[in-house]
């Protein structure tokens, strides 16, 4: 089980990193989404894996629970990463609409400006 989770984290990280290195905004956003999945699962797994041990206190006496703290951290992380994705989407949309190009390479934009002068 641990191996599966670790390999999934690794695969998502690799995919995310590859995509954020692309040259257009949309794949970069997708890459960031993928990376944030990987990071969230990574943080979650730092509480160690447990099956059937939800951190809901049992009314029926002693039970063991999984680590709730990483879960709480990841819960807010999921929501915040949504917020950040939304901001990025808006920025990239704005950039595309203003510049008519969704390339992320600013150096090229400078060259266009220079050659226009």
């Amino acid at each position: 089980m641990e191996l599966l989770v670790a390999s999934a984290i690794g695969a998502m990280t690799a995919g995310g990193v590859y995509l954020i290195l692309r040259l257009r905004t949309f794949p970069v956003i997708l890459g960031l989404a993928l990376l944030s999945y990987a990071v969230n699962v990574f943080l979650f797994s730092s509480g160690r894996l447990a099956i059937d041990m939800s951190p809901i206190l049992s009314k029926y006496g002693e039970a063991s629970y999984t680590d709730p703290l990483p879960q709480a951290l990841v819960l807010t992380a999921i929501v915040i990463s949504f917020g950040m994705t939304a901001v990025l989407v808006m920025i990239s949309l704005g950039a595309f609409l203003e510049a008519d190009s969704d390339e992320i390479d600013i150096a090229q934009a400078d060259q266009i400006e220079d050659s226009a002068q």
């Binding site: 670790a6 984290i9 690794g10 990280t13 690799a14 995919g15 990193v17 990987a38 990574f42 797994s45």
Partner: peptide, 15 residues
Amino acid sequence: LIALAAGGGVGGLAY
């Protein structure tokens, strides 16, 4: 290659 290195590193660490 960069992506594989990063993925391998993070996955290995998690494991």
